[in-house]
Structures are given as structure tokens and as C-alpha cells.
Design a binder for these strands. Sequence first.
DNA 1: GACCATTTATTTTTT
DNA 2: ATAAATGGTC
Length: 750
Amino acid sequence: MDLSMLNPQQRLAASTLEGPVLILAGAGSGKTRALTYRAANLMDQGVAPWRILCLTFTNKAAREMKQRITALVGEKADDAWISTFHSTCARILRRDIEKLGYGRSFAIYDDEDQNSVVKEILKQQDIDDKFLPPREVRSKISDAKNRLLTADEWFAGSDRDHRCQLIHDVFTAYEKRLKELNALDFDDLLIRTLELFAQHPPVLQSYRERFQYVMVDEYQDTNYAQYMLVKLLTSESRNLCVVGDDDQSIYGWRGADIRNILDFEKDFPETTVIKLEQNYRSSANILDAANQVIAHNERRKDKRLWTDSDQGEPISVYCADTERGEAGWVVSRIKLFHGQGIPYSQMAVLYRVNAQSRVLEEMLMSTAAPKIPYRVFGGTRFYERREIRDIVAYLRVLENPADDMALMRIINVPKRAIGDSTVQELVRHARRQEIPLFSTLAVPPETLSSRPRKCVAEFAGLMAKLLVLKDTMGLTDFVEELLKLTGLQAQYENISAEDAESRLENIREFVGAVHEFEEANPEAKLADYLENVSLVTDVDSLSEDGGYVTLMTMHSAKGLEFDTVFITGMEEGLFPSSRTATDEQRLEEERRLCYVGITRAKRKLCLTRAYQRTIYNTPNHNAASRFLEEIPKRLVKDEAAARDRAFRDLTPARAPQPTAGKTPLRPGDPLSIPGVQKGFAASPARVMAAQAKPQFKVGDRVIHRKFGEGIVTAITGAGLAGRIRIEFIALGEKEFALSLAPIAKLEDDA
DNA sequence: GACCATTTATTTTTT
DNA sequence: ATAAATGGTC
């Protein structure tokens, strides 16, 4: 294997094949490259590809690694297992889960399914879901599972109060119910695999012998269960290579344990430690900023990322009046940069919470032509849409008839007169007989009166028909047939509801996705597709040259890079989130998240915030994020300053002031008290009207208080009757009264 | 059993 | 503000 393309550390990483290896890889240091070369090198040295296991966190990372290894060694890379922890476990379980008393066609439950189960149990046990919100129960269960605790063990280590007792009871019932449903939640995929290994040593042994070489990407994000899995698999071969960066550990809230990477050398004393510290991604300014921010963390391994690339451009910091202004500025910059030749696909807007995407999306949509192509990742995923979930629920029931949750969802969708009372009767019957709800369809209870009985029988007939078709048709054809036979499609075709059209569109898109999947995996069965639905996220489908601007959370952006990155909402309370303010450890995680965000940028980084942000319909005034303050001023260019200067120059010495004699506090000033200051500044229009305007001429670059930057396209009339037309970068052309418009001339700074 | 109106929670990040 | 959940009515 030709390793001459690598730097000395990368080369060392790619050529240290035996024994435990810890690669500490800073952001942008070429760790994927080192890993892929290492895998290729292994194969080159005669290790059979099927003896290699690579574990990642996202399908995208897995896919990318697979592609890159294939590029180096060709087709034989196909025999290596390169996939996410969850898919790997699902694959192992599909083979042997019957040993644990589950059926092979187990369902994988997502949050919403989990929620339904918890709710069902709360109802059953007569617990008020206001006293014990399902959310909380779920998170407690997940926490416990991540630490490999059973309900009993969890309770023993808890406060042991009444509340914990209730949680324990729900937890216990939840586990029992999931098994009845022949379903596994996300955590179960790992746990049950470990259980399989623990209870059936020969199974473990076979995988141990098979996987002589194990590699783990993003090791800093592993939780205890994942740690155990890796440890179990490699305890004999000792050939474990992990790559990670403690500074990029951002999944602590999901049970990731940063100690896994910090203590790796303790776990494996004979470890070879390799540090990748040269960053190839970002300009010196960006890297400097990232380093300065992360240096504020106490708990980290000491390392110095360096680069020999140019200083690059200063980091833009922009403070807008409101979140709309913030979004407007981002949109205008995207247009500007695009005009300068940066492709849309090389720009990303990152934020802390998904909810922030909305304003951005509104602005992007309302912008004047040329429209900016964009794609929002995360948030409500495609498969979470109602009409899609309905189809998937049908498929799930057909694959796994024990899945009561899915059946309940579709038993009366589309409406077929099987109402609540009928369903309840069926459920009671199923409980008594201890059979799945599905089984009651064919043999409903005697007590059911004739009309509902007929409806149920008809539904049972439909499902029976589908069951036959399922095994005789191709996947895509089957789905099309299902849409017809069930009336799911007709449901939206006949109705003129305003959202019917988009739902139909989604359904068509779903069929397209199934088709695509079938093309890519001709052998695939329904079970495989369902697994894909459960484990694949939309971020996995991000493509490098999609020609669109990417909008996503900083969490989702981990592992990605863009020429230009915007990070919005750089405000205390939002980022870092107010929930982390009291806890130093969680605050450090927020800072790491900031580090991840900053280091996504190659050449241009723009950080924005808003003086006033409306959350829940309530205006908030947030101070600048501490992370913003942690970036040295010498690296920063304050974009708002140019705008403010333009306004200040126009403000007369004795402008009307809200508070006589005193400089008014502006929200965002260190002294301002949140909630006291209402708006941004007092009636700018009035201030402007009070004094003479500079002469505008066609072609001038101007800035408008509300609409942002624009170019003067026409001036008509004079004096009080004067009108001015401005073409705004983001929002198109608008006309104003010359004497009133809150506009200012802008010096050229681009 | 279906539909409409009122109420209520939602905001951390995701495999 | 919005979307889901509940409850009451036809």
C-alpha cells in the first residue's frame, strides 16, 4: 500500500496494525484518510476483508469510509463490515435473536413508538402523565439502558423514593411489553446484542474469531454499552484501533462517556498513541478562533492543532436586531458569496436547535429571484410525517404481526368504521387471551356486535391479501399495490384539503425512496427496508455536490465540512443553552459543540446573533454568547459596526432620547436588563426624518433598518414627495418615501 | 363513530 | 405561534 500521500503521523496510524491503537485526531486532521488507508493497508497485508469491522456513528460516515476504501483496494472492500453500531447490532441480532426469545422479524422502535408504549403503560397503571411525563420516563429508561442496568438495578441505585418506584414499575412493564411486541428500541439493539453474547458464548466466540481487526470512529461519542461491545469483541485479538477527539465529544446527554477515550490507555496499557495535530481544513484565523474557544475547557487532553495554511479572512460577526434580521443578513450574504463564485453546496447554516431553522427557511423562501436552493436536515424527518408513518405502520404490521402499536395506528386509517370502542374491545380480548391484537382480527370476540364485526372482518381480509402479496411481489410494486388496496392514496386524492397535495407528493416520494432502495439492494426484503427506515437519517443522504445550501444543527454537522459556515444564534441562553448554565460539565460540552461548529468552516466563518429573539411568541433579549467573547478580537470583523456607523453618522447630536440625559441601554449591552428594554432603538424613522439625508443616487449601496442591504434602483420626486426604490439583496425591490425611509448609505466594505 | 372546537404543551442536541 | 391532544356534540 502506497502511504506516501500521508503525513508522518497519518502514516504511522495507517501502518500500526497490531495491538491497541489510540488515534487522537483533531478536527480536520485527516482522520478518515488515516483510517481508510489503515483498512486498505490491512487488506493489502493479507488480512481477509471479512475479518475487519469498522464501527461508525452515522451511515454517512460508514458509506464514505466504504467508498474510500473501495477506491484504494477495489471490490474486495465489500466484504468488510463497515457500518454504524446500530446497524451492526441489528445485523447480528437478525441472525440469532431467536436465542433470546424474540422473533427474527423484530421491529425497531423509534422515540414516537417508545412514547406510545410508555403512555399505554402509564394509562394501564393509572399514573397521571402530568405527574410523570412520558418524556422523563423514556429518558430515565434510556439512561439506565445505556449503563446496562435493568429496572431493578436502576432502582437500587436511584433515590428509591415513590417517584423512582413508579418509574421502576413503568420501566419493568415497558421491557415486558416491548418483548410482547417483538420490538427493540434503539438502546436495545446494543443491549440485546450484549445479552446475546453473554448468554451464548459460542456466538460471541464466533464474532471474536471473525473480527480480528476492529476500528471505531468518533470514539469519544461511545456510551458504556458500545464500549462493552467493542471491548468484548477485541479482548482476545487486542487489535482495536479507535479514533477520536475528546474536544468533539458532544453526545454526553445521550449517554456518551468521554472517559472511554480519556481512559483508553488505562484500559489497554500497551496502547500505541498517535496524535494527528495538523489541520488541513481551515484557515489559520478559523483554527485560531476554535483553539482559543476550546482552551477555556478544563477537562481535556492537551493538544495543539496547527496549520500551515494562510491566515485567511477575518471571522465575520454580525449582530442583528431580531432573528428575522439575522436570517435576512445570512440570506444576503449567501447571495453575495454565491455571486463571488462559492457554490451553494459549499455553504452551511448551523444552529443550536432545530427550531431556529424556521426563520431561516422563511427568509430563504421569500427571497427574490434567483431563489437560493437549500435543504433542511434534521428536525421533523421525512419518515416522521403522518402519511409516511401510516404506510410504514402497514408494512410493519405485515412484517411483524406482533406489533400492536403499528396496528393500532392503522386499524382505522383510512377510516373504515372501526372506532375507538371496537378497538378497545379487541384490545381487551387480546389481553385476556394473551395474543397479539392482530390475531383477534380473524377471530373477534363473541361480544362484538354485527356491524363492527363486519368491518373488522373486511379489514382482516385486506391484511390477509396483503400478507400473500408481500411475498410474491417486488418491494416497490408491493408498496404501490398496498397504497391502492388500503385506500391510503385515495384518501388524499379525493379530498381537496389544502395539505392533501403535499401529502400525496410525500407518498410519491416515499415510493421513489423504496424504489431507489430496491435498485440499490435487489435482494432486499421488506425487513431490510424497514430497518433502513429506522436507522437511516436524512443527514445520511447529504451529498457533496447537491447544489443546495445546507441547514442543520451543529450536532448533525459533526464530521462535515464547508467552505463557508454561518453559525446563528450566538447568544447566552440559546448557545450555550440556558439548561447548561449551572453545570460546568455540560457547559464544557456546549463549548465543544461550538468548537465543532467553528471547525466545520474551511475558509469563511460568519457568527451571528440577534438583540431580540422571539421564542414562544415572547421577545427575549439575550447577551452575546460567551463563546463569542472567547474569540480574540483581532480575529474578528464586526459586520454590524459598519451598519451602526452609518446610522450614528446620521443621528443628530441632540436626537430624541427615550431616557433624557442618559445614553439608552441597548439590549445586548452588558448593563441591559433582560426584559426591561423593549425594542431595538427608538423610532429610527423619526430620527431619520428629523435631519437632512445625504444625497442618494441610483447604484448606491444602502442599508435599510429592517430589510438589510440593497442597491438604489430609482429616485423620483424631491423633498417630502421624494420616493426611492431599492433592490434588496435578499428581499427584492421595495419603494419608500425618501424623507421617511430608515436607510443609510453604506461605504463599500466587501 | 366522526367531526369540530377548545385546550395544552412545545424547545436541546439523535442513532 | 403552532401542533397535537382532549372533550363535547351531532
